[in-house]
Amino acid sequence: MNNISSIRDLFILLVGSSLVSNVVLSQFLGLCPFLGVSKKIKTAAGMGAAVIFVITLASAVAGVIYKFILVPFNITYLQTIVFILVIAALVQFVEMFLKKVIPSLYEALGVYLPLITTNCAVLGVALTNVQKEYGIGTGVVNGFATALGFTIAIVILAGIREKMEYNDIPESFKGMPSVLLTAGLMAIAFCGFSGLL
């Protein structure tokens, strides 16, 4: 019984973090890659996959470090410094590991990995997990869901941008402004998901 309710909680968390409070469209984290790497669906999907991979891993590692190093030694106030260094090191390490062990996955994600190091969504998720006092397992689910939300948003935006490319847009609104307006309209659409929970 307990198991079922906890699984239900996790599912609610999954929907909540990926759709209802979407990381880009309602929390404004990871905005730069969202606007920068969304010109083509293919690159957007690649970026999304890399982000899912890194954020899930980073929330697991950050969760473990928080629980077994920062809390026992009573130095939780160092979380910001520790998390950002851990994330930067982790991305480098993942890159080397993938290159040696799973070259095919490295081929697919390789270009995007170094670009993620300073993506504020990664640090944001690690900090949110701590702030909301999620356990390690819940934190990983939250991380995965958040990254999934990022991927959904960036792929949709890339699809819209591909269609928009040849439209006749007023001179001043060419480029960034039209993309931002699109993102705003998407944010309105995503507001509709708040009825889900």
């Binding site: 920068g36 010109k39 170094p114």
Partner: peptide, 9 residues
Amino acid sequence: EKGCSKRFY
């Protein structure tokens, strides 16, 4: 932010 550039793509 090295991860944010349009010029990459």
